[in-house]
Nucleic acid binder design. Structure first.
Length: 217
DNA sequence: CGGTCGATAGTCT
DNA sequence: GACTATCGACCGG
């Protein structure tokens, strides 16, 4: 099965998110191809979602989220990490699904090499555990922002996504999103994280940490 | 094991 | 100038 037509992605992220679970996200460039079977995602719902980048409207960074579904929204944060999202909904919605984790099913050696270039080695089962590691394993950078799934970027990176044939895999779980606080600091107000149980690549839950300021003076 | 904290820079107020 | 859809080293048990 190939990447579905763009229309397939143009649905509510709360509906699309579980459909992505178990599917295979793949990126290929000159260095080679890496593919992951998606095991954990989070839905971000634009203007209705205080935790979404797109909550306050379109900016230069989040412009891709406001484009049509079926594209890659890739951003850079914390001064060192990239993250990969699948844009959901029709153009203008600002909807997306963050790919938080996956099991590497192709190109494990390349994924490990990319990891080693920056940090020490990691257990192969955890090569794509956490959003930053997903992007690093796939080799995704800001140059991939706006890439069409099923297409190729101007830099020559080919992206594709193959969903599980037919339906979402049974038995997926839902819970609060990681590192996102809802109204009143309650992340459980938006339990929009979806994952496959029993997968070693699924990251542990971390609440949005109110990080302590450095001591005054 | 599990909790805590530093690194590091783009983005928005 | 504070905050961030984070990672991993480090420390104590």
């Amino acid at each position: 099965m190939a990447t579905p037509s763009p229309v397939w992605f143009e649905r509510d992220p709360l509906e699309l998110a579980p459909l992505l679970l178990g599917g295979v996200l793949r990126r290929a460039d000159r260095a080679g191809a890496v593919a992951i079977r998606v095991t954990e995602v989070e839905a971000y719902r634009g203007a209705d979602d205080p935790g979404a980048h797109s909550f306050r409207g379109r900016t230069a960074r989040n412009a891709t989220m406001f484009g049509p579904g079926g594209h890659v929204y890739c951003y850079f944060t914390y001064g060192m990490h990239h993250a990969v999202n699948v844009v959901a909904g029709p153009a203008g919605s600002g909807w997306g699904v963050l790919v938080r984790a996956g099991a590497v099913v192709e190109g494990a050696a390349l994924a490990l090499a990319r990891r080693s270039a920056r940090r020490a080695s990691a257990p192969s089962g955890e090569l794509a555990r956490g959003p930053g590691n997903v992007a690093q394993a796939l080799g995704a950078t800001l140059a991939d922002d706006g890439a069409a799934l099923g297409g190729t970027t101007s830099d020559g990176a080919a992206w594709s996504f193959e969903p599980v044939a037919g339906f979402a895999p049974p038995g997926h779980r839902t819970g609060p999103r990681v590192g996102v606080s809802g109204p009143g600091g309650d992340a459980t107000a938006f339990p929009w994280r979806f994952w496959l149980p029993g997968e070693p690549s699924v990251s542990a839950y971390r609440a949005a940490a109110p990080r302590r300021r450095s001591p005054a003076g």
